[in-house]
Amino acid sequence: MSDSTANAIEAEGLVKRFGETTALDGVDLEVPAGRILGVLGPNGAGKTTAVRILATLQLPDAGTARIGGYDVLRDPVAVRGLIGLTGQYASVDEDMSGRDNLVLFGRLLEMSKADARARARDLLDRFELSDAANRPVRTYSGGMRRRLDLSASLISRPRVLFLDEPTTGLDPHSRNEIWDIVRRLVDDGVTVLLTTQYLEEADQLADRITVFDHGRVVADGTPNELKRKVGGQTLQVKPSQWQDMDAVARILLDVTGARPLRDMDSRVLNTPVEDPVLLSTVVTRLAAAGIAVDELGLRLPSLDEVFLAITGSKQGVTA
C-alpha cells in the first residue's frame, strides 16, 4: 500500500460495465503529486471512463480511488474541490460568451463578483481569448473552445487536472499551444492525468505512460522504457516505383536486421530502428541501388505499432 500523501491520484481495481460491455476491467493507477501520467489507448479502451470515475462523474462497479487522499466515493465534494476537468468536448455553455462562462464558474466557486471577473480576465488573457471574450462560445473555433474549456478548469487553481484527449481534432498549432500550457501547469506543481491516442503527445508531456486496451492496463513505464519496447523510432520509406518495393525491403532488412512492414495501399515500408544513424546508411544503399524514393524519414511509432509491440497483435483484437 503506497503512501496516500505522496500520490495525488490513486486507483485500485476499477471496474465499470455498461450493459454487456466492460469498459474497465480492474484498472490500477498511481500518479505522484506534481507529475504527469499519460494514459495511452485507442478509442473504447476505457480512458474516458477512468477519467469520469476519478472526476466523480461516474460510479465504479468495483474498486476504489482517491484524489489528494480523498475517496471519490465517500467524499466526492472534497475531491471536486481539488480537481479540474477538461474533456474531449468543451464543457461550457455555448450560448453564453467566454467571459460570462468563466465568471459564472468563478462565482459558483465562491469568488466575489470582482474576484471572479478579475480571474476571468487573467485567464482570457493568458489563453489569448481576450478578443473573443464577449462573443458566444458557439462562434469559437475548435482550438478556442478547448482553450476556454481548459481555462474553465483552472479557475479554482486545481491541484489535480484531468485532461481527456485535450488535443484530439486540433490542428498542430493549437495542439502545441495546449502542450505549452500543460507544461507550465506542471511547473507550478499541478498533477496531471492526460489521456491521448498519440504516443507522440504522451512522449512530449508525460513522466510515465500507462497503456490501456479493452479496459485493462497492458503496459506501464517511462516513455523511454516504452519506446525501447517498441523499438525507438520507425524508419519509413516510400519508393517512387512499385517494382522497387522488394529491393527496398531487402535493403531495410539488411541494414536494420528487422523485416519491414509493408503497407501495399500507400506503397510505404516501415521498420523499427534502434539507432537513428542507420538513416544515412539506408540513403547511401538506396542511392547505390539507383532507387528513387518519394518519402524517407524517421518518425515515432504510431499507436498501432505500440500495440503491435506490446500485445503482439493489432489494437482492438487483443484477447
Binding site: 472534497a78 471536486r80 461550457v92 464558474f105 474553465a152
Partner: peptide, 20 residues
C-alpha cells in the same frame, strides 16, 4: 441542452450543490 452539450459535466465536477 445542458446535458447533451456537456456543461452539465462541468457543473457536476465542481464542488457545488447537486440541486443547483
Amino acid at each position: 441542452t445542458d446535458i447533451t452539450k456537456g456543461v452539465f459535466d462541468r457543473f457536476r465536477s465542481m464542488p457545488i450543490a447537486r440541486s443547483a
